[in-house]
């Protein structure tokens, strides 16, 4: 309940000069004490210590997020003379310093969330949709794996039928007394093989389309989801940073830092809001596309399989014509389940 309240409050505008609610003070005190235990350094460190903490954080093997991937392009506050003096080395130092600070803040936020103390912005509806997408993808991957197994079985069955047909045809030539009987069986096996190849083509098409849906179409949206989750973490890290500064003493030094923290927070908030909108849109489009693709593929799969097992060659061929699937011409390499790997 407390986390829920904090989560909802977090999405509202945070006043620059407002103090936290009285109810939150004990929570913040607990948070600060836990952080001092977890982190070597506390929240009131100066910049030099923060940079050291950042390096230490990287040394621990934690994955940095934020500025490492999106280098900051904000102008340096120093004058042109200083810029010339420092040159490229200075620029690189600034980038690394900002990256270190950003990594430190995000790592701190991540750890505080893991330990159940830090507040986390929650968009419950969106996160439920994201979790549903991940679960759906796992299930479609299972269907994909089973589809590949099916093509492997069909392929080996066709090999057997082909060999059996050849054997019967050979014996038909060598056994005049049983020529007709062997001949019938040879023709039957070869017809089964032919229809099986048609079915295999249909199932291969099904598998290929599901593969594209899972590994490309769904992955495209999940890529944006990962960016959104990283942006959410950054947003919460800088929101926490701003809240802590707001609770601190007010003097000339802290006022400047407060204004700087407010500007940085606003940048990360804008990025978070944009990515949240992107994810919402892409989830809708993905759902429409998934339904369209699966409607077609499931119809194809059902029609082909039922026609094959009903022994209805005409209907089987009509199914592939209906979906305009062009089987490879004779002479071309046969579709192999290995190609689907």
């Amino acid at each position: 309940m407390t986390d829920g309240i904090l989560g909802k409050a977090a999405t509202m505008e945070i006043p620059i000069h407002g103090n936290g609610e009285a109810g939150q003070l004990p929570e913040d005190d607990g948070l600060e004490q836990d952080l001092q235990q977890v982190m070597v350094s506390g929240p009131n460190l100066n910049e030099t210590s923060i940079v050291s903490g950042g390096y230490g954080g990287s040394g621990d093997g934690l994955i940095p997020t934020g500025s490492g991937r999106h280098p900051s392009h904000s102008t340096s506050p120093s004058g042109p003379g200083d810029e010339v003096a420092r040159g490229i080395a200075g620029e690189k130092f600034d980038i690394v310093k900002k990256w270190g600070i950003n990594t430190y803040k995000c790592t701190k936020q991540l750890l505080s969330e893991r330990f159940g103390r830090g507040s986390r912005t929650v968009d419950l509806e969106l996160e439920l949709q994201i979790e549903l997408l991940r679960e759906t993808k796992r299930k479609y991957e299972s269907v994909l794996q089973l589809g590949r197994a099916l093509t492997a079985h069909l392929y080996s069955l066709l090999q057997t039928q082909h060999a059996l047909g050849d054997a019967f045809a050979d014996l038909s030539q060598k056994s005049p007394e049983l020529q007709e009987e062997f001949g019938y069986n040879a023709e039957t096996q070869k017809l089964l093989c032919k229809n099986g190849e048609t079915l295999l083509g249909a199932v291969n098409f099904f598998v290929s389309s599901i593969n594209t849906l899972v590994t490309k179409t769904m992955e495209d949206t999940l890529m944006t989801v990962k960016q959104y989750e990283a942006a959410r973490l950054e947003y919460d890290a800088y929101r926490t940073d701003l809240e802590e500064l707001s609770l601190g003493p007010r003097d000339a030094g802290t006022r400047g830092r407060l204004e700087s923290a407010q500007a940085t927070f606003q940048t990360h908030r804008d990025k978070y809001e944009k990515l949240r909108g992107d994810v919402a849109i892409k989830l809708k489009f993905l759902e429409e596309n998934k339904i369209k693709v699966m409607h077609k593929q499931l119809l194809l799969f059902h029609n082909a399989v039922s026609a094959y097992f009903a022994g209805n060659q005409k209907q089987l061929e009509q199914t592939l014509q209906q979906f305009n699937i062009k089987l490879r011409p004779p002479g071309a390499e046969k579709p192999s389940w290995l190609e689907e790997q």
């Binding site: 290929s208 179409t217 993905l286 596309n289 979906f323 305009n324």
Partner: peptide
């Protein structure tokens, strides 16, 4: 893609097709 160009409806959102060529596969979004 050797699919039927008939009955094409206006695309809403996006779709990804794997278009095979002799020397490359194009995943077209």
């Amino acid at each position: 893609c050797s699919e039927s160009p008939e009955n094409v409806v206006s695309t809403t959102g996006f779709s990804i097709k794997a278009v095979p060529f002799q020397n490359a596969v194009l995943n077209v979004k």
